[in-house]
Design a binder for these strands. Structure first.
Lengths: 199, 199
DNA sequence: ACCTGAACACCGTTCAAGT
DNA sequence: ACCTGAACACCGTTCAAGT
């Protein structure tokens, strides 16, 4: 696995560029990410990335897609290990969501920004839909268990999704002031569940 | 006020650049906004903006600050014309917030992104705080009226703020699917008020 | 099949010089 | 006080040529 000596063919250029790209994303931000800089870091000429990514946007799209895959896996894992109680499940989901998004602020922003760009690969929108489907399923389960009011589950899931996404925005934009994120997130879920509960 | 003939001194360069900048922001996005392009549009040399904005970021900061001022004014106006009923007031606030943010997607993103950048002018953070203070005041009023549970109003206001910011993110990232935004926003406020109400 | 090197058209930023 | 023009160091992208 050691690749200290680099012959003409890098052998692993695509993955190396993605790894360097994700580092650069969180340190300098998507706007300042430079393809030439990544090539330098990885030790190839500035034109070499072209073989693997048609342009800068293609590399950003690949980073976003990769992010969605890990994001979805983390949400699935949280639910799979969460037990059966509805409140516990939705708390587990919220913690996984907020945890992923606040440890990778630039990536989560890129993920949702790339998704709807003109010419974005359809896999991106599909991956985002799969992540949203997890939240939808939880709402449907909650309705079946009588813990959530009846009504369009898509709408209720979008409200829940908005709340989580907003908490992430507050945390990542440094608007928490002195609020600890964990307590704020759990309090938000508590209020949401009360608002979703039948009277 | 006509300035068709442009002598050596533009006379209004700062405002002209800001106006062109806000147009460019919404059409091409902050990442693709080019200072040289703005100078061309406005009819000055590429170095002229330097007199009014130290660098590209300074122009973006000025756009964000201007945005926060209009945003705050719109929120204030919505509350001033909203009557006294708590539910009505919070609905008016939500409509003003979501309305402003979804008609200027790139600006609202820039506003919250610029706010916490290293070296950002302190006026930005202050303007953001003033906008948040509006939401906080509504929560405090709701508690006084007995429509909102007691407890840290900062925390409750942040939850309300997160919900609105998340709705904006969903709308601006094209995740509404077939949900009409107005109905989703009003339903979200309804659920929030139920979750905030004393039992 | 994968990478290099030169070339092109763009940037942001700086600074002496012009009005 | 405000703006221009040349210059510099960077980009992303393209393409013939190398291995």
């Amino acid at each position: 696995m050691s690749a200290t000596a680099r012959p003409y063919h890098h052998g692993n250029l695509r993955e190396a560029l993605l790894a360097a790209g994700e580092r650069a994303l969180e340190t300098t931000g998507a706007a300042n990410l430079s393809l030439r800089e990544l090539a330098r870091e990885v030790g190839v000429s500035h034109a070499a990335p072209r073989r693997h990514f048609a342009d800068r946007q293609a590399l950003l799209d690949a980073l976003a897609l990769n992010g969605f895959e890990r994001f979805g896996a983390q949400l699935d894992h949280a639910l799979a290990t969460a037990g059966e109680d509805f409140t516990t499940r939705i708390l587990a989901l919220a913690r996984a969501y907020v945890g992923f998004a606040t440890t990778r602020p630039a990536l989560i922003e890129l993920m949702f920004a790339s998704k709807h760009q003109a010419g974005a690969p359809p896999e991106l929108a599909q991956a985002a839909d799969r992540a949203f489907a997890v939240a939808l399923a939880v709402v449907v389960d909650g309705q079946a268990a009588g813990a959530v009011v009846p009504g369009d589950p898509e709408r209720l899931a979008k409200i829940a999704f908005a709340l989580l996404q907003g908490l992430v925005a507050i945390a990542n934009n440094h608007m928490l002031d002195d609020q600890p994120l964990d307590a704020l997130r759990d309090a938000a879920v508590e209020r949401l569940l009360l608002g979703f509960a039948p009277r």
